[in-house]
Design a protein around this nucleic acid. Structure first.
Lengths: 197, 197
DNA sequence: CAGAAAAAATAAAGTAGTTTAAGAAAAGTG
DNA sequence: CACTTTTCTTAAACTACTTTATTTTTTCTG
């Protein structure tokens, strides 16, 4: 196989922040479940209580919600090596308000709430891993929140293209518009305006 | 004194997620520094490399940045029992882009980058504390990001009033508008429209 | 508590982004 | 590869929010 084996991928991801010995690696792997979703299939829907956090090893997931007018708002796109899920629902075990849908045939590893707790009990340094992971996510969400209230749609679009070029060319403009918080029509206008420069 | 002593306050905050024995409490306290700022005084300015994370024990801090047109955008208001700072600058030790300014005479406890690392080394369960703290912050920033791109200013204003009524009546409308990402004039219009209902 | 400074309110004109609609291009499916 | 469905583009009318300007109200400071 060309792509790294999914467990090597997640161990490398974890290895950014903590070192594990072989038995810890085995224990960690044993607490994960494998999952997959065909293109257009839902991994999760509103109303469900989130049972897992997801780590994508192949493909692309779209995490989004519908507002009261039925308009989609994309919270994130998760491609290879991304962690995703609905943290609020997972953490507090309350019904989610999000859809998670596969945009491509997707494979992922999952960790359940109880295994998540067990992981911390058995290998406490995973607290450190997730502390670092969340710290980084927090930094990027703080930035994105500020961008959302201070920049124009065109500026946010350019930032997305620069930051996630490999995501931008895998998703539709419609989905990208839903991530930027604008209509597909307006994104189309922005693009034609930009290409004329 | 009426207000709980500042160290009791922070220990209670930490106690939400981890239990400390007396010697751990003493060690933790020894790693903190006390600080204060008079109304209108800056705690931090852009260009500085953030040396501390802050825990407010009294008063109110405003964390904000200026965009290229000189318009203020407020990232957060930190009142008693709030943790704040510029995480990106603190974590990566690179120059900050934020101002932190006291809106009232304010007192806080600070932890330096090196003491932060030492804390994790000496009392590893603090990894758990910060893992939980960041996990919660992440949940609220994910929500705020989505609100920013999917709701009208009026809706976001109502959410703020419901969620932080005790903050809303301590800050100016100008600062609140800068938090919502709108002009003070438009917030004023929203308010007069709402009061006519 | 008086004078200065800052914040808030109101209003008119302007702009970023939406809505609706219709046709062209691209992609999914048998 | 034809057909259906979805996405993308373009454009005109509309709305949420900004800009600029002026007046009123509140807050700060000596």
């Amino acid at each position: 196989m060309d792509a790294p084996y999914k467990y090597d991928l997640i161990l490398k991801n974890v290895g950014r922040f903590i070192e594990l010995n072989d038995s810890e690696k085995d224990l960690f792997k044993s607490l994960l479940t494998e999952g997959s979703a065909k293109r257009k299939e839902f991994v999760m829907q509103p109303g469900e209580i989130t049972k897992h956090e997801y780590y994508v090893t192949k493909g692309c997931l779209k995490v989004y919600s519908l507002d009261r007018n039925g308009v989609q708002h994309v919270s994130m796109f998760a491609i290879e090596d991304f962690w995703t899920g609905d943290m609020a629902s997972f953490m507090l075990q309350q019904p989610s308000t999000y859809y998670i849908k596969a945009l491509e045939d997707t494979e992922f590893l999952m960790i359940s709430k109880s295994n998540f707790e067990r992981l911390f009990k058995e290998i406490p340094k995973f607290e450190r891993f997730y502390r670092n992971l969340y710290q980084r996510s927090l930094v990027s969400y703080v930035r994105r929140t500020n961008e959302g209230i201070s920049l124009t749609a065109e500026e946010r679009y350019e930032i997305f293209l620069n930051k996630y070029p490999h995501i931008a060319n895998r998703i539709t403009q419609k989905d990208l518009a839903a991530y930027l918080g604008i209509t597909p029509e307006f994104l189309s206008m922005i693009r034609s305006k930009m290409s004329k420069r």
